[in-house]
Amino acid sequence: MSPHRSDLRTGVPAWQMQKGRLAMGNVTRSLVTEAKTGATMSSGEPILSREDRDGVPTLVLLGDFDLATVEDLRAALRSLGTAGSAAPQLDLSGVTFLDSSGLGVLLDFQRETAAANGAVVVLAPSAPCRRLLEITGVDALFDIRD
């Protein structure tokens, strides 16, 4: 439990989001997908990246996630897979917007992995994200860690 916390604290704080995104191109993290609009990297442009944090597969979500990107999110989660002993982690600290379609994908993912690996770990959800989870009453389904 504690290594995760320290990872998170030293990992991707929300205020570093922009920098982290810009850095992505030349670091070892595998870029899973990026919105097709490419070059114009305005705020809210969603980015999905996969990391290993102490051997735990972690998907980092940055930006806005809506109907347009829901299938990208689904594909990224699928590739994150359910392999390994530990439950996969989702880093939602950089999510600036998540709507019900994105939440639906997260819930599908949770359903698929829950049986094999236990609850999906959600790391430090951003305020809009937390609000969404609470309002829809699905926060109890995830292992939310700040």
């Binding site: 809506d66 109907l67 917007f97 709507d99 305020a127 809009p128 609000r131």
Partner: peptide
Amino acid sequence: PTSRRDDVVIATMEAVSNAVE
């Protein structure tokens, strides 16, 4: 304020998503 704004945005965008879809 941001939290208030986000509530409005989330709710509105759900309606827009419905309409768009």
